[in-house]
Design a protein around this nucleic acid. Structure first.
Length: 552
DNA sequence: GGGAGACGCGCC
DNA sequence: AAAGGGCGCGTCTCCC
């Protein structure tokens, strides 16, 4: 497939078409205003656009109604390659390396930042692309790494399209929900009626007339003055207390949180023209998970999801993967016994059936401990049993933890590398040959080292899980496009939300059943891309609903 | 009055 | 029931 590198040249754009071997075939210069038309035409035959950064090119194309099939996002691929243990770093070295390292995505709806003195304009995407291709070709795992680079770039397209389309959001439904829970919207600087009533009740119960429940310091002192033995004001700490002031306080905290995080201010800031538009940042987390900025898209509380409602005649298709990370672990470790447990829709029940533990609760707590590094209590007791039954799977995360404790870098299945440890870790990790029991004899000495081991343990699984979801998203995006219609992205079935292991598609009602089918096919494709013929299932919970709240 | 950091809590 | 990993964000608090 041929590639076209796009470069900004002042107010103009240069498009350099390259053949398979990288030699330039044709160079086109055109005014920036004609780019959309050019891209639309060129998309008629297969092409991969190569650009410095999707957030600098794609929003304007989408605004002009132009969708691209595939791209290479040099900013993102650079970041992956720079940290991958599969790569000989010398092949990426160049004068501009630090410039690419430092390149940041541009926030949406901030065109003012784009034309003026953009540091991206001092970088040469052609040279960078050549370096990256050479590094990839010479890498220890060009197949896996190439897949990761393609998936990462595809994720950038998905993210831009989701921001462009937005999640359908009914401000009237949201407002009604807030009014029912909190009372009418108060004047600025005042508490809603329900919170005010609760505050009065809390003050009376605790015998603290002037108490402001929003102040953790005041609250802690008031609780202690009332004779309650607490050291913090967290909800789950308070739940253990038996005192008439506690129930209204917990209610207050819950509602105050709703008001602060997703109340009327949120609605005014983030919902426009019936859409919640936040910006997603692919690769924003070191493990490869996405971050987001604006409106807290990664933590939209269940409480307000009734306001996410499909347009008239449309539906939301909500799909999530059950127990993604243990399934990914089974696949990447090639543990056939755990893959067998994953054959059933409920992996934890499968572990019980496999005879490792007696109950589903034990299976769950044991697996979570294996993934996160829980060693105390229940989960610590379950681990040896799981290790006997699933030696390859548990062995993989244990080895990742040990490697982290030794200060080594670990990597995901496709080759995303973990950051090297710094700071406190480096000072502590002087003697690497020390036996484990002596380490434990000094409870404080190696706290940082063990904490880093928990991070690397989780990194390999969380990161490979993120790779599975990237492949799922990338394949689904293309399937949705092919599914029907001739219009723009937002006029066809399209992705509107993504959260670690869950997607939401907005689709015309008559296509909803077909979307369900494609979501499942894309999941199967992702499994094959990562794990080939290894038999591990990724069952989905899929729901066709009018409101997000009706899923699950 | 503005910035940094802790806290607390929402999501996976 | 939380713990153990990863986040974003609003508020309060401290300090300049």
């Amino acid at each position: 497939m041929s590639r076209v590198v796009l470069l900004r040249r002042g107010a103009a754009v240069e498009a350099r078409e390259c053949a398979e071997d990288g030699t330039a075939v044709e160079v086109t210069r055109l005014p920036a205003g004609e780019l959309a038309r050019f891209v639309r035409e060129r998309e008629r035959t297969p092409v991969r656009w190569v650009w410095d950064d999707t957030t600098r090119w794609y929003p304007a194309l989408l605004a002009s109604g132009v969708r691209v099939e595939r791209c290479t996002d040099l900013r993102l691929t650079h970041a992956v390659l720079r940290r991958s243990p599969f790569v000989d770093q010398a092949r990426l070295a160049g004068e501009e390396t630090s410039g690419w390292d430092a390149l940041q995505p541009v926030p949406p709806a901030d065109p003012a930042l784009f034309p003026l003195a953009d540091p991206a304009d001092r970088l040469d995407p052609v040279a960078e692309h050549d370096r990256q291709q050479a590094a990839l070709a010479a890498s220890a795992q060009p197949g896996r790494l190439g897949l990761l680079l393609a998936a990462e770039s595809s994720g950038a397209l998905v993210a831009a399209e989701m921001t462009h389309a937005g999640l359908p959001w009914r401000a009237d439904v949201h407002d009604r929900l807030l009014t029912e829970l909190l009372g009418p919207r108060p004047r600025p600087g005042h508490r809603p009626a329900v919170l005010e009533r609760l505050a009065v009740e809390i003050r009376a119960s605790l015998g603290a007339p002037g108490l402001n429940p929003d102040s953790p310091g005041e609250l802690l002192r008031a609780l202690q003055a009332a004779g309650l033995p607490v050291g913090d004001t967290r909800s789950w700490t308070l739940e253990t207390l038996d005192h008439p002031g506690i129930p209204p306080l917990l209610e207050y905290k819950k509602l105050a949180r709703l008001l602060a995080a997703n109340g009327w201010n949120w609605l005014e800031s983030w919902v426009r023209e019936g859409r919640f538009r936040s910006s997603f940042l692919p690769g924003g987390v070191v493990t490869g998970r996405w971050a987001s900025t604006g409106g807290g898209a990664l933590s939209v509380p269940v409480q307000v999801r009734p306001a996410a409602v499909a347009d008239d005649g449309w539906r939301l298709v909500v799909a999530d993967v059950a127990q993604l990370e243990p399934r990914v672990l089974a696949g990447m470790s090639g543990d056939t016994a755990m893959a067998e447990a994953a054959r059933s829709a409920d992996l934890y029940q499968g572990i019980v059936a496999g005879g490792a533990v007696a109950t589903r609760a034990e299976a769950k707590v044991g697996m979570l401990g294996a993934l996160y590094g829980g060693t105390r209590g229940e989960s610590g007791r379950m681990l040896p049993r799981l290790a006997r039954r699933y030696p390859r799977a548990i062995g993989l995360v244990e080895e990742a933890a040990r490697a982290g404790e030794r200060g080594e870098v670990v990597h995901t299945l496709l080759g995303r590398g973990s950051p090297a440890p710094t700071g406190a870790w480096a000072e502590r990790a002087v003697d690497l040959g020390e036996p484990p029991d002596e380490r434990d004899a000094r409870p404080d000495g190696d706290r940082h080292r063990r904490a880093w081991g928990r991070f690397t343990r989780n990194f390999v699984v969380q990161g490979t899980g993120a790779e599975w979801t990237l492949c799922w998203l990338a394949d689904l995006r293309n399937r949705l496009w092919r599914l029907g219609g001739t219009g723009r992205v937002e006029e066809r079935p399209h992705l509107v939300f993504f959260l670690h292991d869950e997607v939401v598609v907005h689709a015309p009602e008559h296509l909803a059943a077909a979307v369900v089918e494609e979501v499942r096919r894309a999941a199967a494709t992702a499994g094959r891309l990562l794990f080939g013929a290894f038999p591990v299932d990724f069952p989905l919970d899929v729901a066709v609903v009018e409101s997000w709240a009706d899923a699950g």
